[in-house]
C-alpha cells in the first residue's frame, strides 16, 4: 500500500514540477492583490476542521485560523495565512508564479472566510462558487445556547459545554474561560472563547489545536467580490456542488451540449454547515 502511495506522489510531484517549469509564465512575478487592513490581532486560534459527507462517505480535513482583534475578527483558511507569512519573511520583494505555486502545493489554501465586525454586530461571509468569489453580509445570528454541566479539556483549557439548534443542526460547543465572545465560523455568543464545536452527527467538527498571542495585521485581499445574499449564496453553492454540470449548462462558459445530453445527477463532496 505504501509503495503505491509513494509512486502516486512521485508521479504527481513530477507532474507538478512539469507544470511549474512549463513555459515562461512560471517565471513571471506573482502579483498579489492589495491588502485591505481590517484590524490587528492579539489572539490567534488554529482549528482543525473536519467535514464528513455521508452520501459519498468521504471525510475532508482542513485547518482554519481565527484571528481576533479588538474590533474585527477573521476566520479563514490556515493555508493562506501560512503562505502569507512565508512570503513576508522569505520573499519581501515579490516572488515568481512558480514559487507561489510551490507554496500552494505545500499549504493547501482553501477559499472562504467569515469576518465579524464586533462593534456593529454584523458579519461578512466570503465564499467561492465555480469561478467567482461572492460576499454577503448578515447581522450576528441570534444563537440561543443552553448551558450544560459537563466539562472537557481542549487544547490545554478546561471548557464548559453549551448546546443549541441553529439553522437545521444541533450543535455542541465547548468554551473556555478566556473572556472573548467568539469562535470558529459564525459561532459566538458564549461567555468564553469557543474551542470546540460539533454537530450531533459529527459531520462538522471544529477543534482548536493551537492558541497563542499575536500582533499581526488582519487583512482582506482586495478582489472583485460579487455581492449577494445568504439565501442565494447557500442555494447556489448547494446547486453547484450537487449538480455541477447543470449549474453552468447553457451558459457560454461551458461548451454547449451538442446532443442535448442529460445533465448528471452526480455530486461533489458537499455537506452544508447551515441547512436553512
Amino acid at each position: 500500500m505504501r509503495k503505491i502511495h509513494y509512486i502516486i506522489f512521485t508521479l504527481i510531484g513530477i507532474c507538478a514540477h512539469s507544470q511549474i517549469f512549463e513555459g515562461e509564465y512560471g517565471n513571471r512575478p506573482a502579483q498579489m492583490p492589495e491588502k485591505l487592513p481590517l484590524d490587528t490581532s492579539y489572539i490567534e486560534c488554529i482549528y482543525s476542521y473536519n467535514v464528513y459527507d455521508p452520501v459519498i462517505d468521504e471525510n475532508e480535513e482542513s485547518y482554519q485560523i481565527l484571528e481576533i482583534g479588538k474590533n474585527k475578527s477573521k476566520f479563514a483558511s490556515y493555508g493562506y495565512y501560512r503562505i502569507d507569512s512565508i512570503i513576508r519573511n522569505d520573499y519581501p520583494n515579490s516572488l515568481t508564479l512558480a514559487q507561489y505555486g510551490n507554496l500552494s502545493i505545500a499549504n493547501k489554501p482553501k477559499p472562504g472566510s467569515v469576518i465579524k465586525d464586533l462593534n456593529s454586530g454584523s458579519l461578512e461571509s466570503i465564499g467561492r462558487i465555480f469561478m467567482d468569489t461572492y460576499i454577503y453580509e448578515e447581522p450576528f445570528p441570534q444563537m440561543q445556547w443552553k448551558l450544560g454541566e459537563e466539562t472537557q479539556e481542549i487544547c490545554g483549557y478546561r471548557c464548559n459545554k453549551a448546546t443549541m439548534t441553529f439553522r437545521g443542526r444541533n450543535w455542541t460547543a465547548w468554551y473556555c474561560d478566556i473572556p472573548i465572545n467568539n469562535g470558529p465560523w459564525k459561532f459566538g455568543n458564549l461567555p468564553g472563547l469557543i474551542l470546540k464545536v460539533e454537530d450531533d452527527n459529527r459531520e462538522h467538527v471544529f477543534n482548536a489545536v493551537s492558541i497563542r498571542n499575536s500582533n499581526n495585521l488582519i487583512f482582506l485581499y482586495k478582489r472583485n467580490y460579487v455581492k449577494t445574499t445568504r439565501e442565494k449564496f447557500d442555494k447556489a453553492l448547494s446547486d453547484y456542488k450537487l449538480n455541477p454540470g447543470n449549474f453552468v449548462a447553457g451558459s457560454p462558459v461551458l461548451l454547449k451540449n451538442k446532443n442535448g445530453k442529460p445533465i448528471p445527477n452526480n455530486r461533489m463532496f458537499f455537506n452544508p454547515i447551515e441547512k436553512e
Partner: peptide, 17 residues
C-alpha cells in the same frame, strides 16, 4: 494568555489544483 499547541497543521505533498 496561556499559549498551548497540541498539533501543528501538516504541510502536504500535493496541493489544490
Amino acid at each position: 494568555l496561556k499559549e498551548v499547541t497540541v498539533k501543528v497543521p501538516p504541510i502536504s505533498a500535493r496541493g489544490d489544483t
